[in-house]
C-alpha cells in the first residue's frame, strides 16, 4: 500500500541492500587493512635498509635489499639461522606426530567404548583444558630434572605422547561422535578388530579432524616460547623462538631489518600452511564450540 502512495519510500527500500553492502565492505576493508598492516610492514621492512625502516611508514621498500636476510641468517651467534629452524622442526615434528597419534587413540576409546568411569575420565579430560599450565610448570620442571631431561627436547613433546592436550582429544571425540556407527559395525562384520576399525575406517574418515589437530599443534608449537625457555640452556639447541628473542636482546638498537627478516622467515611456515589449509583451521576452532 505504501509503495503506490509513497514512491520515495519504495525507492529507498530498493537501494537499501546496496547501501548495506557498501557500508559493510567499507568497514571490512578498513579493519582488514589495519589488521594486516603490521604483517605487511614486517615483510616490507625485511627488504628495506635500516634507514628506510626508521623514516617511512609505507610497507613497500623503495630500494629493496636482501641485506637483512643475508646478515640475519648469519645471526650474532656461532650458528646460522638454519640451525634454529632445524631445531624447531626437531621439536615440532615429533610433537605433532605424537599428539595426533595419542589423541586419536584416546578419543576413540572415549567415543566408542563403555569404559568404567567414562563420565569421570571425560570430566578430567575437560578439566585439563581449563587448567592453567603455570600451576604445573615447576613440578614438571623438577620431574624432568630428575629424569635427566634438562637441555633435551624430550620435555617439550614427551607429555604430548600421552594425550595431555585435552582440547585436541575433545575435538576428535566430537568429530567421531558425529559419525554414524553403522560404518564401523559394517567393518566389524567384515572381520576387523577394533584397532583395524580405527586405522582402516575411522582414521581415513576423520582425516579432516586429524589434519586440523596436526595444524593447530604445529602452529602452537612453532609459537611456543616459555617451555623451550625453561628447558633449553645450550644455544645450539635453541629453536627459532628463543633465537629471535636472543637477537633482539643483542642487536635491537641497530639492525631492525635483520630481525624483521628473520621474523618473516620464522612465520613463513605457519603463513604458508595457513593459506593452504585455511578451512581446516576454521573447522577445528569451531568444532568444539558449535557442535558440542
Amino acid at each position: 500500500m505504501a509503495s503506490s502512495l509513497n514512491p520515495v519510500d519504495h525507492g529507498w527500500r530498493k537501494h537499501l541492500p546496496l547501501v548495506n553492502a557498501f557500508v559493510r565492505y567499507g568497514l571490512l576493508i578498513l579493519v582488514g587493512f589495519l589488521m594486516i598492516y603490521p604483517l605487511l610492514w614486517m615483510i616490507g621492512g625485511a627488504f628495506k635498509n635500516n634507514a628506510e625502516i626508521f623514516s617511512s611508514v609505507g610497507f613497500i621498500p623503495k630500494a629493496p635489499t636482501t641485506d637483512g636476510f643475508i646478515n640475519g641468517w648469519k645471526t650474532s651467534t656461532e650458528y646460522s639461522f638454519a640451525t634454529y629452524l632445524l631445531n624447531t622442526m626437531k621439536i615440532v615434528v615429533p610433537k605433532v606426530i605424537v599428539t595426533v597419534i595419542s589423541s586419536v587413540i584416546v578419543a576413540y576409546g572415549f567415543a566408542r567404548f563403555a569404559i568404567p568411569g567414562r563420565k569421570w575420565l571425560f570430566a578430567l579430560l575437560m578439566a585439563t583444558v581449563l587448567l592453567p599450565k603455570s600451576v604445573l610448570l615447576i613440578p614438571q620442571y623438577l620431574m624432568f630434572r630428575e629424569f635427566g631431561w634438562l637441555d633435551t627436547y624430550l620435555p617439550l613433546y614427551a607429555p604430548q605422547a600421552f594425550a595431555t592436550e585435552g582440547f585436541f582429544v575433545f575435538m576428535i571425540i566430537q568429530f567421531m561422535r558425529s559419525l554414524p556407527l553403522d560404518m564401523e559395525e559394517a567393518a566389524v562384520m567384515d572381520g576387523c578388530n577394533s584397532f583395524q576399525v580405527l586405522t582402516l575406517i575411522v582414521c581415513p574418515v576423520i582425516l579432516p579432524a586429524i589434519i586440523s589437530v596436526a595444524l593447530f599443534q604445529f602452529m602452537w608449537s612453532m609459537n611456543d616460547f616459555l617451555q623451550p625457555l625453561i628447558y633449553l640452556s645450550s644455544v645450539e639447541k635453541y629453536p627459532v623462538a628463543l633465537a629471535l628473542k636472543m637477537s633482539i636482546d643483542v642487536t635491537e638498537a641497530t639492525s631492525w631489518n635483520e630481525i624483521l627478516a628473520m621474523s618473516t622467515i620464522a612465520l613463513a611456515p605457519s603463513l604458508i600452511l595457513f593459506f593452504v589449509a585455511q578451512k581446516y583451521f576454521v573447522e577445528g576452532v569451531t568444532s568444539g564450540a558449535v557442535k558440542g
Partner: peptide, 20 residues
C-alpha cells in the same frame, strides 16, 4: 562368536559404505 566368524553378512539401513 565374533561377528565375522558367524558366517553372516549384513546390509545396513544407511548402507554404511566406506566413503574413502
Amino acid at each position: 562368536a565374533h561377528p565375522s566368524k558367524r558366517g553372516v553378512a549384513m546390509v545396513f539401513q544407511s548402507y554404511a559404505l566406506y566413503p574413502h
